[in-house]
Design a protein around this nucleic acid. Structure first.
Lengths: 147, 147
DNA sequence: CTTATTGCAAAAGATTTGCACTCCA
DNA sequence: TGGAGTGCAAATCTTTTGCAATAAG
């Protein structure tokens, strides 16, 4: 199954019309190892794709895809927001150390348990497949305590 | 100890100069039950304070206070960023519905439990005193499932 | 066919910045 | 007194929107 097929299936799965622009934007994010800003997505399409997409459409497409949880959206408050393809089969999260910047893996089990508890007690369904946690890794935390 | 004193002490504690504008901005956030945008802070000062502050200074002051962890910053990604006075004794969580934008209160107990579990099993110390969760409120989630 | 989607360009905001002046430490 | 802080207005920058044309289902 090609990358294009992956995107197309995902679009249909959430009930969205399949357009050349949405496929292009989706593939740009699917191919990206890291996250991309809207402008980076568009720039990539200018170079690598036969389908140039206007920036307005990139924004509209990203917004739509985020709404349908096909892509994740992260706004760290500085400059542009970033987006990334979400794989329902492999949920992930961002646990970023404020001191050294390392990304730490968090056991999905913990997130699931937390999510269920929140749903049960707070009448809110958190999207934990793309949670952005900030904190300290073990090494930096130890250093903070000793120092 | 007056509210003004609370702000002043905090400013001095982090090594910042004490100015009428910083006191005013700090008090505006300290008095706010919820969080405020920069414009809301300024508007409040026009009405309630003898110290009007330019919007540029409000932004600069907020930025400075956030840097010194006196104030918390939250960017909903839509519209303006919001700020709030940080009180270590009263952690504040944000659970924002992606569909209707409502903010839902999450029981602090759940976050504490989650934080302890993460620390114990994942060697990461999450900062949960100002966590921003994204998801759907009960109403929008029900609508999504039925629709 | 019917309605959603797109492109273009202009608009809308939110936040920042240059510069001269003011005030805290 | 010196350097940080402030006001004003213009500038920047990201994201949104109106409208006519186009394309998906």
């Amino acid at each position: 199954m090609s990358c294009s097929d992956v995107v197309e299936r995902r679009l249909r799965a959430v009930g969205l019309r399949v357009t050349a622009q949405r496929l292009a934007v989706g593939e740009a994010l699917l191919h990206a190892a890291d996250h991309r800003t809207a402008e980076e997505v568009q720039a990539r399409l200018q170079v690598e794709s036969a389908q140039p997409v206007s920036l307005a459409t990139v924004y509209r497409t990203l917004h739509t895809l985020v709404e349908h949880r096909v892509v994740g959206h992260l706004d760290r408050g500085r400059g542009s927001a970033v987006y990334e393809w979400l794989d329902p089969q492999h949920p992930h999260h961002h646990a970023l150390c404020v001191d050294c910047g390392v990304e730490v893996e968090i056991a999905p089990r913990l997130l699931e348990r937390f999510g269920r508890a929140v749903m049960a007690e707070s009448r809110f369904t958190p999207f934990l497949d793309h949670l952005a946690l900030v904190g300290r890794c073990a090494a930096c935390e130890a250093q903070t305590r000793s120092g």
